[in-house]
Design a protein around this nucleic acid. Sequence first.
DNA 1: CACGGCAGACTAACCAGTCGGTATGTGGAA
DNA 2: TTCCACATACCGACTGGTTAGTCTGCCGTG
Lengths: 202, 202
Amino acid sequence: MAGTRDGGNGSGGTKPVARRLLATATRLFAEQGYDRTSVQEIVDAAGVTKGALYHYFGSKEDLLQEVYSRVLRLQQERLDAFADADAPVEQRVREAAADVVVTTIENLDDASIFFRSMHHLSPEKNKQVRAERRRYHERFRALIEEGQRSGVFSTATPADLVVDYHFGSVHHLSTWYRPEGPLSPQQVADHLADLLLRALRP
Amino acid sequence: MAGTRDGGNGSGGTKPVARRLLATATRLFAEQGYDRTSVQEIVDAAGVTKGALYHYFGSKEDLLQEVYSRVLRLQQERLDAFADADAPVEQRVREAAADVVVTTIENLDDASIFFRSMHHLSPEKNKQVRAERRRYHERFRALIEEGQRSGVFSTATPADLVVDYHFGSVHHLSTWYRPEGPLSPQQVADHLADLLLRALRP
DNA sequence: CACGGCAGACTAACCAGTCGGTATGTGGAA
DNA sequence: TTCCACATACCGACTGGTTAGTCTGCCGTG
């Protein structure tokens, strides 16, 4: 039934038109929100028609989910790499905390869609996204707990709350960060990671 | 032209029906999002008809703006009170930081609407809301800067970023906080304020 | 009787998704 | 080489359904 439809598969060879459609949709969703963006607008901006869009994607919602899974995959991979590295906990946390800030800023459109439009997904897809998000959260929490057990981090705050505290600031980036501002992504990331580490000092 | 329309004025004597409509709309917007909630749903849930709603409000968007201005008014008042108090900076920051967490949790519906649906407002109204938010932000920043100047807070991070860091976590509350969870609003608030203060230690 | 408060049918606009049709490309048989 | 069969890629008019907002009129109260 799916024909050439591009479900939500791995990475590899997506067709140029499909890629352009997804990129255009991402931009428009970020600018105007999911509900305020019509399928017609997307195909017009991408220079094709509805026939093309529905040839590659099953529904408007599928476009949204594609954005999510791309972001989640990317960030999970990066977190795993930093967490598994061979370095002191303190440094691994700092690098992971800073990295998620940089990649979030570099994909600010995806991020703002992610945090603003998740509730537009159908219950099943929403559940799936939440599960992936939890996996990410747990991985980060484990890292904090490791530091707390080994005594380099304070145990004054439950690790769960610490993670939510930091990801709050990441979440918030799309609200206030502007590329034309005075701070580079890396500078912002270093500051935010520093705040986290300072808060965790015993 | 406005007749009995309730623009977006002060506090005082709003009619019961108008209050019920606003409360119902707030709940539905928080549950389903602004765009996914039809005016028909709101009036059905409130036990009236469209005639009543458009008698008291000029448009669906006006309902949204009412939610915003109520929250902003409340939080600005409280921040001013804490900031103007006669106490050491450290304590004033701690109390203000904790208070905004408590009041956000106590009005979690308003908060999630606020952070998720601001982009649904028309440009003018959006601008107005942003201006009020900036006022709030600046007040908080001034407090941090005062502490930095007097040496009780580290100057390692620009005050602006510190404010965004903390409000990120406040913003984020509506994503993860659940009333049935293990922590009371006050406990969460104390933890988050503590994290902020610990991060600011010189 | 005048008017605020509200009912509810109505309208004009819009939108996601469908579907029959067309163009382009590819591989194999004659 | 020519021609046919078939699939992929895409077009765009159309449909069924929904929505915000309007408008006419009723009804109880002062």
